[in-house]
Computed example of a mutant assay.
Amino acid sequence: MRNKEGLVDDLITSIPGEWKFDEQVSQHFDTHVRKSVPLYEEVQKAVIEISEWFIRDNSVVYDLGSSTGETISLLLQKHSRKKNVRFIGVEESLPMIEIARKKCSSELVQFLQQHIEEINEFANIDLVLSLYTLQFLPLWKRKKVLQRIYNGLVEGGAFIFVEKIRAENSLFEDIWNDLYWDFKQENGLNEQQVIKKAQSLRGVLIPLSLTENLSLLSDVGFQCMDTFIKWHNFAGIIAVKMPSKNDIEENTYLNTDKNNKIQQ
């Protein structure tokens, strides 16, 4: 039967085109993600380390698609000596949030049960994270979300996101996908589970190439971007909101005018 439910991990089932972060997935997410996402631990470590350049006293940090609160928990530990740093996790799955709240029991942490595209406005944000989340948004919604993130960041604030990506060339697409499937099987998933997971993500996970992701960031205003990690068909990107050219010219003019008045 075409839509027969099948195992995508030992304790997780799904059917083609209907992958959901439901209670079943939530209970086993932390284990499953390490089997199916390359360099997961390394990505978490890199994000936490990079955050040191952007989180200071009174900072506001958003984690979009915060799942079980793993990243916020690590950030909370890393920046525990700083004053009044607020962490806001946005997650549509209530079972995920329930786990996250137990993992991050602090008055500085808030979890919102919400679709990330429903956040109409961010304001005075120092750091926004989106780890393996934007890839689940329909393409027509991504640019709107990115624009709101850009608008809401303070100057010098950063957006860090990690995505599954498409190769720039069809030859590499085949190579990267084969190596990705090898990775999953080396981590304990059997061939049938790998196939069932791929089927469950049909039309649900829609990756873009690295170039297309960078182009989207540029379209919404980011000018300072770099790739901080890459593994075959996965990549992590950081984008920093820099002062606009007009702001730089205005500040230069004001400083010059001030110096002229002092000299007079």
Rank of each mutant, 00 (worst) to 15 (best):
E186H: 09
L153C: 09
V61A: 01
Q77E: 14
M242T: 15
F29K: 05
E91M: 10
V109W: 00
P95C: 09
N151A: 15
F87Y: 05
Y132W: 06
S73W: 08
K230T: 12
Q263N: 13
R142C: 10
K20W: 14
S105V: 12
Q192N: 13
W231I: 04
N187L: 12
I12P: 00
L11C: 14
G6K: 07
I238Q: 01
R56N: 12
R56C: 13
F161Y: 06
I149E: 02
K258F: 06
E250Y: 15
L129C: 04
E117F: 15
I229T: 11
E107G: 13
I15R: 06
A239Y: 02
L134P: 04
C104H: 02
L112E: 10
K35S: 10
E173D: 15
E212M: 13
F122N: 00
I160S: 02
W176H: 05
E70V: 14
K143G: 12
F111M: 03
V33E: 07
E173T: 15
V109N: 00
V240K: 04
I165W: 01
C104A: 07
Q264H: 11
I149S: 01
F172R: 13
L11D: 11
E249R: 10
D63N: 04
E91F: 07
Q27F: 14
A198C: 09
D226G: 13
N169L: 08
G89Q: 01
F234G: 03
I175M: 10
S218T: 12
K78W: 13
Y180M: 09
L137V: 05
K141F: 10
Q192K: 13
D182Y: 10
S26T: 03
I149Y: 11
G65A: 07
F228Y: 08
P16G: 08
R142T: 07
F228P: 00
L146G: 05
Y62C: 01
K164V: 09
K102R: 09
V240D: 11
N246W: 07
F172M: 11
E173R: 14
P138L: 04
K258W: 06
I175A: 06
V47K: 04
R166T: 13
I165P: 00
D257K: 14
N177S: 12
C104I: 03
K141I: 04
R166Q: 13
F159R: 01
S51V: 01
F222G: 03
Q113H: 14
G89F: 00
L74T: 09
D63Y: 00
K4N: 11
N233E: 10
F21S: 01
S66V: 02
W19K: 05
I55T: 06
I72R: 00
V128T: 08
G6R: 07
V61L: 02
Y253N: 14
V204L: 02
W176C: 02
V162R: 03
S170E: 15
